[in-house]
Write a protein that binds this DNA or RNA. Structure first.
Lengths: 190, 190
DNA sequence: CTGGCGTTGCCGAACGATTGGTATAATTTC
DNA sequence: GAAATTATACCAATCGTTCGGCAACGCCAG
């Protein structure tokens, strides 16, 4: 009767993690959200909550990787590629009201198993943007900092949007991202 | 002997919250960190963990408010004032490796009592920067977005610094903040 | 077609451990 | 000695997790 596939379960858990964080989400909450008994959850995920988190991180990586690859496809102009990527980020973060899995999992007790994966993924994200900026003529050292700042702006905008309840901040960060990467207006620091 | 004052307890709890989040921090952890029995903690904070959180938010506000007021002091040039504020932010966030209480408390279950206070405080922060930018000649509507983006950049840089383990990202956000607020290089959007 | 049988998915109930919280008594401090 | 502070022991509730069993499925032998 209450039959939910693995994907559906993970989707529900993702929503809960993004809203309540890893430690703030209990198996009881997951059970309630998925309409599945707790025992059923352990049937699909014998490793329990940790396995769910790990699979979600893997899912996150699977979402990012092909899109970061797509950024390197030289068939279309760089600005356009970034804009496409940003619009995908927009729908991925559902407009900004919901939190980010990165942020949700960055907070937590030390034995957080998946920190390395998160770090690697974020570095992958940054370096993809940096590479793109560099190929567009931005000096190498500046390209790296631009990419870092761009990702920081997006993540920060997501957080601020959530706290003050105004998603336009996140929307603006998406729009400004291309200029942060390529714009000539950026001051270099000594 | 182990007479930890309220301030010392709150300081320890602050560190734990910033590192592990609100739900990720247990009273047992607080007890261990402060070397105080749980009963002692409840003697100082009859309201338990919630009261600690609320008092920490109040402490956060008490830290911010005078410094935001100081931003409005027209005795010194605006850029200098912002730089001073940023260096204070630097020591407040201890160079960037530690997380932010805003971010730590933004994640959590819905009945999060202090969300309104956090929202108001962040709005206060933003509007103080916006007012400063406006007084320095930035058009009013642009000043608001600059301030929002500036705060987002700082919070995001803090998060990214923590995840990838490179505090230079946060340091750079501090340095670039004045330009984000006042710089003429920023593109307006249609 | 039938009858069993293993597999799969689900659930109620319960596990030990830990959660936040509270008695009450012993201790310190002044 | 009175007040403030701490420790010991305990509480119900909830935590993540596990167990045993039940219903429904496809599959193959007879």
């Amino acid at each position: 009767m209450a039959t939910a596939s693995r994907q559906e379960i993970l989707q529900a858990v993702l929503e809960l993690f993004r809203e309540c964080g890893y430690e703030g989400t209990s198996m009881a909450m997951i059970s309630e959200r998925t309409k599945l008994g707790k025992a059923s959850l352990y049937h699909h995920f014998p490793g329990g909550k940790e396995q769910m988190r790990d699979e979600l991180v893997k899912l996150l990586a699977d979402w990012f990787r092909p899109r970061l690859e797509q950024l390197k496809d030289d068939a279309t102009p760089p600005r356009g590629r970034v804009k496409v990527f940003m619009s995908e980020l927009d729908s991925f973060f559902e407009g900004g009201q919901r939190g980010c899995l990165f942020a949700a999992l960055a907070v937590g007790t030390a034995e957080n198993g998946c920190r390395i994966e998160l770090k690697d993924l974020m570095n992958l994200w940054i370096s993809a943007l940096a590479e793109l900026a560099e190929k567009s003529g931005v000096p190498a050292n500046d390209a790296q900092t631009r990419a870092e700042d761009c990702v920081a702006q997006l993540e920060g905008a997501l957080l601020v949007s959530r706290i003050v309840g105004d998603k336009s901040i996140f929307k603006r960060a998406l729009r400004q991202a291309p200029d942060m990467l390529f714009g000539s207006s950026r001051q270099l620091e000594s």
